[in-house]
Structure formats: structure tokens, C-alpha cells
Design a binder for these strands. Structure first.
Lengths: 300, 300
DNA sequence: CAATTGTTTTTAATAATTGTATGCAACCTG
DNA sequence: CAGGTTGCATACAATTATTAAAAACAATTG
């Protein structure tokens, strides 16, 4: 079989559902109507009708579509569960790369990975092609793919790019009107930062998630499809690397909380330049953390 | 044939070249050595040897590889020229979309387009997948692709994103040391702007190219793979739309030259804030031009 | 003549095929 | 018998062929 007949199978089962609402001897509606009802093309409807005829459920000749008997449980066609979505695939892939610390230059085996992630090889191919725009993977000279991965250069350029995007977001944010929903959100975040700082000795590992939410909140004020696309990748990369570097985690996180609070305070005061300066400081620290995390990790 | 045997054909011809350096009766080196010499795998070498045997050029049995006669011109296998590269494909595609003003929502027929651009359908698929990261195309619910295209929203977000990237570049540029190659480059551009302004009545349509070079020069100081990737698209979009809007072209271009010169002057003076302000003004104008060009174009 | 069905064409997803690469074990040969 | 060489087997990705699905068009029926 060239392509899966999953669509046909689902339509067939849906048709059985519909037949159960009828009585033996009833006429089924027109092909077009059924197609609309099942949300498939007429071609599929006709295949379904033919199969129903073969199963002895239906007498079908021209416009005559008489139900011969009510469908039973055994009439249903088995249908396998549908594959995961593109977004899930992306998360899975980045998760795999970052969690297992796949080294740069690793050849990526499309067939094997497709099996591992439970998607068609074709879909994975497509996904890798789209990832190549972020420079995370690239085609090898004579076929196949290879992970470019998180080299030092990549990390630096990603951090720099993040800085550009986020400073812009901070700038925008400072100019937003008082009734914008971001302000209560920031106030809530500020309280959470204070709460975490107070219990830093026991809860310092909770910071990673708070950091993610803080940056997501700031990024959310810029409605731009290009920015959004990048932030997905940036968030994941920083999230994982933050968790890698266990050295001085408590101190680092306490310092970062302070940096966050400086940004929030400046923003609340509508002091744009102070907010931008505070954000720049924080992002510089963050970049250094990322780089040192890469260094330490390379030694393992 | 499942995949092209271009690699085999090239190796075969290269092997003929090599055989011409030998005399009749000579022994050929080991498979592995030939593989290294021809830069292909041993499998290909063995196929080549087999074919040479079939052509009566070689007696091959085990490690006995005796050249029976010198190759002639007629022995060569024809090889077709290789298809265009990914970058060429990108230019072709954007060129097609922008030049023919393909409307948003147009379904993209992979087979047909592959024929038109002279690439394998597979390659085009991959290219579309990578373009989907820029939101220029997207997958349709049940298979196939569709052009999202340059809607008003897209143009606005693209312009905003361009502004973020370019203001950052201007900021960086202002801080570069005196011996950086950008400064003579800027000086040359300044002179060209003055020259064009002096002859604006006859040469006003030359501005589009100068504009492109001006922005490319500014963008070149930021070495960042993510920025570079986007600038390719941005450049093309603005380049074409600039040429669309014929209304008041002379005046618009003259004004833009002035805006460019303001940026250059501020940069030369190392006055960062003035340079950023001038660039912001120019990019705002540019955004308006893009939007009005879309409006006018939609009426055609 | 409007609704419905029959037929054909087109398109995209996937299975199957084939070219290419590579690892391993057997084999020769000095 | 050790080093190199070959034969064989396997793995993988690019492409072709096939098939499911959709859509367009023509014919038919009430």
C-alpha cells in the first residue's frame, strides 16, 4: 500500500456509527451528503459504501442504498493511533539533543530517529529541513543530516541574538499603558521572586522554571511571528543548560533573582533606560552561565 | 532507477582518465586505493571495474586487474549537469512569488513547481519545509502547501523585525574602531549617495540597488547566523516592493538618500544616539513605503 | 433542471527499489 | 603469519512507482 488508508478506516467506522442511528431497511442519504457528514471526499464515501456492501451490511445499486442489517462490534475496522504533531516532534527532538548532550557533528539517522520518535521518516525529514534554518542541523555533503549542535560559537550567537530580541521587548514593555495586562503579571512575578529568595536555601532549584516564566512574560509583549519562532528555541536551550551547571547553583540563582528584581523595579518605575541596562546586565550573566555550562559539560 | 548514478558515471570517467596514464597490460591498484583516488566508496569502484570489464577494457578476476586496451573517447559515459543549489532555489522561489505577485492563500503544487524550477519534487518539499519557519508558507490541513504570502500583518511584522535587527547593527557599528574596513566602505557609499542625488532626475531608479548595498553594509558588521538568515529574506522583500511603487518614485528616493546620508554622517561622527534615531526614521519611512506599495498593488 | 451519481484527472503520501557507503570476516601473498 | 586485499552482508538515503484521496467534469435520474 502506497499511503495509509487511515482516513478511509476512520470514515468507515464513523459510517457504522451513523448506521446505528438507522433501522434495517432504511435508505442512506446521497453520497455528497454523507461526504459532508463524515468530512471526507466522495471518493472515500464510495469506498466505504462498497466495503459496506461487501460486508453484507448494505445493498447498493445506483441511488438505492438500503441498510440490510445493523452494524455489530465485529464490523469495525482497526485503526492505529495518529502520530504526534509537529510541535511535539520539535520538543521531543530538542529534548533529546539537549538532555543526552548529543555532540556536535553527530550524523542523524533519519530512519532510526523516525522510529524512535514514532513519526514517518518523511515527517522527520521535513522537520530537519525546517530546523536547518536555525542552523541546528545541516545536510551533509553527500546525503544525510548532521547535528551542528551547541558549539561555543552557536551559543555566543544565540545569546547575542537573544539579547537583541529581549532588550527590544523590555523597551516596548516600559512604554505600555497602565491598564495593560502585563503589569499585574509583573507584580505577581515580583512577589514570587521575593518568596523564592526568602526560601532560597531549600528551593533554589525552583528558579529555572521561574526564570523561564519571567522571560516568557517579557517576550509576550512583542507580537511578532519571527520573534516568537526564535523564542521557542532560545527558551529550551537556556532552560536545559541552566540545569546542567550545578556548580554554585544556589548563589547563581540568588544573584539572578536580584537581577530580575532590578529589571522589574525599573519597569514598574517606567524607567526605560534603567530597565534596559538591568536586562542587559542579566543577559550578560546568563550568557556567561551558558558558556561555562558548555565548558564544564564538555569535560564530562 | 531509484536514484541517479551520476556519482558512478563521474567515477567511471575519472577512472578512464586514470587508465590513460597507464599502458596496455598494466595492473590497476587495489580497490581501496582506487576508491581513495576517485574519492568514492569501494562499492562504486567495484561497479566501475565491472563495467570496464564489460566494455572489454579490463580483465578482472580477484586481485588481477589487467588493462586490456587504452580507453577511447567513445568509452566515456555521458553525465548530466547537476541541479541548482538550495540558495538558487530560494532566490528563484522568492523571485517568482514577488515578481508575479502570487496572492496569499495560493495552493502550491509541488510537482508542477518542481518542474518549473528544474529540481526534484523532494528538494522542493524540503525547501518549503524550511521556508515554513519564516511563515511564508504553511502546510494545509490535509496535505499540500499553501502560500501565506505578504499580507499586511506579515509586512508589518517583518518591518518591525527588520527595525530591531538594523538598529542593533547601527549601534554596533558606531562603536567599531577606526581601522575597521566598514569606515572606508561607508565613505564610498556616502560619495555614491551624493553622486546619485546630483543626478536624481535621470538616475532615480538606480536608488533601489544603492539602498540594498547601504543596508547590506550596515548589516555586515553583525556576524550572527540568525541575523544573516533573516536578512536574506528581508532584503529580497524590500527590494522588490521598492520597485513596485512607482508613485512619486523620484521624490521618495531623494528623501531616502537624505535619510541615508543622515545615518552615515551620524555614524562617521561616532554619534550613536543620533545614528540610531536617523536609522529609526528611515526604517519607519521604509515601512510606510512597503505598506503603501502593498495597498496600491492590491488594486491592480 | 436540480440533485445525484459515474468517471476521469490530479495531487500528495508512502512503499519499494536502487545506488552508495561501510563494517567484518575470509583470503591471499610476501 | 601479519598486513593488506577482497568478498560478502548490511544499512541508509534518494528517487521512482504506486496508491489513497480530492476535485473536476460529465452523465443520468426523478
Amino acid at each position: 500500500m502506497a499511503r495509509t488508508d487511515e482516513r478511509f478506516r476512520e470514515a468507515y467506522n464513523a459510517m457504522l456509527d451513523y448506521c446505528e442511528t438507522l433501522a434495517t431497511g432504511d435508505q442512506l442519504p446521497a453520497e455528497h451528503g454523507l461526504a459532508g457528514h463524515l468530512n471526507v471526499s466522495r471518493t472515500v464515501v464510495r469506498s466505504v459504501l462498497e466495503r459496506l456492501g461487501g460486508a453484507g451490511l448494505l445493498h447498493w445499486q445506483g441511488r438505492n442504498k438500503t441498510l440490510l442489517r445493523r452494524p455489530e462490534a465485529g464490523d469495525r475496522l482497526p485503526v492505529q493511533s495518529d502520530p504526534i504533531s509537529a510541535d511535539e516532534l520539535e520538543r521531543h527532538f530538542l529534548d533529546w539533543v539537549l538532555r543526552f548532550d548529543v555532540p556536535p557533528g553527530t550524523p542523524l539517522n533519519v530512519t532510526e530517529m523516525a522510529r524512535k520518535f514514532g513519526v514517518a521518516p518523511h515527517s522527520l525529514q521535513e522537520f530537519l529541513a525546517s530546523l536547518s534554518r536555525f542552523g541546528l542541523v545541516r545536510r551533509r555533503p553527500r546525503g544525510g543530516w548532521e547535528l551542528v549542535g551547541f558549539t561555543r560559537d552557536y551559543a555566543i550567537e544565540l545569546s547575542d541574538f537573544r539579547m537583541v530580541l529581549e532588550l527590544n521587548a523590555v523597551s516596548h514593555l516600559a512604554a505600555l499603558p497602565t491598564d495593560h495586562p502585563i503589569w499585574p503579571q509583573l507584580a505577581a512575578l515580583e512577589a514570587e521572586h521575593h518568596a523564592l529568595a526568602a526560601e532560597i536555601d531549600t528551593r533554589y532549584h525552583d528558579f529555572s522554571l521561574l526564570d523561564e516564566r519571567f522571560h516568557a512574560a517579557i517576550g509576550s509583549v512583542v507580537r511578532n511571528r519571527f520573534v516568537t519562532e526564535f523564542q521557542k528555541v532560545i527558551t529550551l536551550v537556556f532552560h536545559y543548560h541552566y540545569q546542567w551547571d550545578k556548580k554554585d547553583e544556589r548563589e547563581r540563582n540568588l544573584a539572578a533573582i536580584d537581577e530580575h528584581l532590578r529589571v522589574i523595579t525599573a519597569l514598574t518605575d517606567r524607567n526605560e533606560s534603567a530597565a534596559v541596562a538591568a536586562a542587559r546586565d542579566h543577559l550578560r550573566t546568563s550568557k556567561q552561565t551558558l558558556l561555562s555550562s558548555l565548558r564544564n559539560h564538555a569535560l564530562v
